[in-house]
Amino acid sequence: MDELIIAGRALRSRLFVGTGKFSSPQALREAIAAAEAEVVTVALRRVNLQEAGDPTLSALDQDRQLILPNTSGARDAQEAVRVAKLARAISRINWIKLEITPDPRYLLPDPVETLKATEQLVADGFVVLPYINADPILAKRLADAGAAAVMPLGSPIGTNQGIKTRDSIRIIIEQATVPVVVDAGLGAPSHAAEAMEMGADAVLVNTALAVARDPGSMARAFKLGVEAGRQAYLAGLGATQEQAEASSPLTGFLHENAGQNN
């Protein structure tokens, strides 16, 4: 069976779902069900781990889904580490999606602080999945520091622009020693399929589902896109050619008089 293993946990679904931006807990629940997601991220700034009846958490089924808390809103390593530790103390979940986005406009991740926080959290026993820009060297440095996976962005959060960082993602995947989860910017099932065809281990989607007219249907479409892309990758895609190869216009002369000189 084609399973994704992160930190020893086997996952059948390669579609992770983010929980922000949905119009209601009901819409969120439908999307998660249709996506058949097994990893669901929640923002620690938004949920209330201590209060019963938190609207986001009540939409989740912890028997079926791994709740992956994220540090969205943290401006530096210190904040992210503090938030992660307090969340673990309450929830006993030791997985953390590390998001350090000091710029509130584009929400781009800070590479310096992310590396720093990863080192500290790994040392403290966390399973760390850092959200990063598509920077191959940073991805290597994070894997060396003990990150359980890396989550490079396809394009800035919430833009739905698809994989604009294609060339760098390709290098990250080629060099990867930990799973690569393409996160952020995937606006259509075809974008998700493309990431999977490239060899990504999984994708994370939020905005595209949350703002769709029918989040459930869109989640199903993304699930199919992820599966199609994964199958194509496993089946071995034919290499693309820049032009047709009907003949060899430059080297044909080598064969024209074959045998004459022998």
């Binding site: 949905f22 209601s24 700034r45 938004r46 503090r82 938030v83």
Partner: peptide, 19 residues
């Protein structure tokens, strides 16, 4: 707000961010 298709968000920050 729910009728308008918005989820009302009462909490969007957490005390644990603060030192």
């Amino acid at each position: 707000l729910e009728l308008l298709g918005f989820e009302p968000v009462w909490k969007d920050w957490d005390a644990s961010f603060r030192e």
